[in-house]
Write a protein that binds this DNA or RNA. Sequence first.
DNA 1: GGCCAGGACACCA
DNA 2: TGGTGTCATGGC
Length: 217
Amino acid sequence: MKIGITHEELYYLLNKKQGNVGHWPHESPWEIMLGAFLVQNTTWHNTQLSLKKIGDATLFDPEIISKLEPDELVPLIYSSGFHKSKSNLIFTWFKWLAEFNFDKQSVIEAYPTSTILRNHLLTFKGIGNETADVLMLYVFDQKCFIADNYARKLFTGLGCPAANDYLTLKHHVEKSTELELFEWQDFHGQILEYGKHHLVGKGPHQSALFEQYFLEV
DNA sequence: GGCCAGGACACCA
DNA sequence: TGGTGTCATGGC
């Protein structure tokens, strides 16, 4: 990268600067899945309103959630928007999980490689690259990089030429970065935290600003 | 009252 | 393959 630090160093700088940001707040894996779907193009605040309603109605019991029809899900998730598509996704997702008896280890073992599992996640209508990676990283415990909007802005600002496309940046970072699983999880949280404070409403090319921030450790 | 948020997808050329 | 419209709510 242009400012001459490795991806690992970037992560450690963010972590040192911002401290513990709590990578993905949750009480259970079911809450992570629901959060990943509901937060699409929505604020975390709106997502939490929906999660609270689902929790009140189901206690996040996957068996109970899996028995809810899309029409029954709509009033629970209304506040996070796109309720038609999101209710259908939750419905089909938990029906699929039921085939594995809601055991995520069984899901992981049913697919020969993490790439094959990820490709299957992408077959769900409503799961794209970013949501698939959130699930892989936080639910199925697979090391990966989430090249979301904030990450692409940040890496572009740092002079990374591969950052304008989701998959290009994802693969670039993954093949050239050595981190533990919990660090990959925290990396996303750190970028998100940084993005919410420094990237909202700003254009992608802010390298001077980034350098000033990171070198002021 | 317009703009945007921790996207995804269909459609078009 | 790349660009654009659409889905929808809540906060500022």
